[in-house]
Design a protein around this nucleic acid. Structure first.
Lengths: 242, 242
DNA sequence: AGTAAATCATGATAAATATCATATTTAATT
DNA sequence: AATTAAATATGATATTTATCATGATTTACT
């Protein structure tokens, strides 16, 4: 009997978030910080917390989103399926980021798919709550706007890189980006474990090509690998790759 | 004497806009429509109207923007200089669009350069006015947010196209895009006259490659050309290009 | 632990694209 | 109108990247 109670308690804690938004540190990193204490309490009461396992899809391309996700832990990729059947990774989303605001704002179905790259913990906030705050709190709206403006700038940079740089350069920059944004394990390997296919889908190339270039980097002493794990050995030269 | 007065009148009308924002039809097409009559009157009193000639730079990459531009007429390209010295065209801006909001919102220098593709008429609205309205009018902020969300979606699409489609496909789609977005002259040629280099800089390829592919399209009867002007001859097959 | 499936790796080859060279045409300037 | 400069066009060739094939590892599963 007591075990059932413990089980239920843990289960509930996992799936119907018991944390309070007002006290959540995560909100410091995104536009939710612009909300008043009252607004946070209201959101807290109707949000749901979810555990998402590595590889699980959070939402699909074309899906109607009924709210936004606040990422409390873990990393996910945002992808779009191309006509040739390949997924292009458009952005990586980390702890502290919001997920799905774009679609909520434009009231469209999602243009991207979100897939967990490791185990994640997210809070789901219903659309109605977000829209209510967007109506009433200009400070919040402005913060969301700033985030979006920043995403747009980054997207522009990606466009230029895709258009003007070689696969070699793009892959080198991707490794550096992951290194600097998501950090490394104690042994120095990139803490986010991506498949070679993921790398190819970030860079926009064939999986074989990505593998080949990684092998070259290895031969040139720019990186080393242990299984699929990658470690940067010479970041200066990696930055200079042409 | 009378001629000097007429000259001055015309000059003033050109450079210090005498039109009234409240009555301007252009505002229907952008987020300024969310402003109240009073706000529009205020903006009207401090905006300046400018004529920009084809080829002129409106603002450069890295420049501090002191306001936004509302495009009353004409078309311009937004470019970013890549490390290899080539300009990448990231977006084309038309009559009705606003220019520079992103930088104003994030209070950063412009990440893009804006260059007129034909003669333009724009109104410059000082930063202080825009920011004041963003503070006070949540409806306006939300409209700017919607625009930005839309730009972001389009940028995501461009990323995927750049990453996953061939130069041939991208060029075909560019021609169709210009055809459908900016229309054609009476003779059926694209109304926006772009150089082959511009096409290359949209598609993200070498100028020679763009020229070569256009020649192929001509041989295949998909398009025809008169000088640098391009006319779509078979839009269905152009859409099917692989 | 053993087997199937997925992922990674590399070779051989084809296709796409870039680069360099050089005409030819068009536009700009005097 | 003549001259110069710029843009367009095309060939030859080099480089980059994709595709197909096949084997080696790793991972997942029972």
């Amino acid at each position: 009997m007591i075990f059932i109670m413990i089980y239920l308690f843990l289960h509930v804690q996992k799936n119907i978030g018991m944390g309070k938004c007002e006290q959540c540190i995560i909100k410091q990193f995104n536009s939710l910080k612009a909300l008043t204490k009252e607004e946070l309490v209201r959101i807290s009461s109707c949000k749901t917390s979810k555990i998402i396992k590595k590889g699980e899809v959070i939402f699909e391309e074309g899906e109607v989103l009924n709210g936004v996700y606040c990422v409390k832990d873990g990393i996910c990729k945002l992808t779009k399926l191309s006509a040739n059947g390949k997924d292009q990774i458009v952005k990586m989303v980390v702890k502290g980021d919001l997920l799905g605001q774009r679609s909520i704002v434009t009231e469209e179905r999602s243009n991207l798919q979100a897939t967990a790259l490791n185990d994640m913990e997210v809070c789901f906030i219903p659309k109605s709550e977000i829209l209510a705050d967007l109506q009433k709190n200009p400070d919040f709206t402005f913060n969301v706007l700033k985030d979006m403006a920043n995403d747009l700038k980054e997207a522009d940079d990606v466009i230029v890189n895709m258009a003007q740089k070689s696969v070699r350069q793009r892959l080198a920059e991707t490794i550096i980006y992951i290194h600097e944004s998501f950090g490394v394990n104690p042994d120095g390997t990139l803490s986010v474990l991506l498949s070679r296919e993921d790398f190819a889908n970030i860079v926009g190339t064939a999986t074989e090509s990505a593998i080949r270039v990684l092998s070259q980097f290895k031969k040139e002493g720019l990186i080393s690998t242990t299984g699929k794990r990658i470690k940067i050995e010479n970041i200066e030269d990696l930055k200079r790759v042409e």
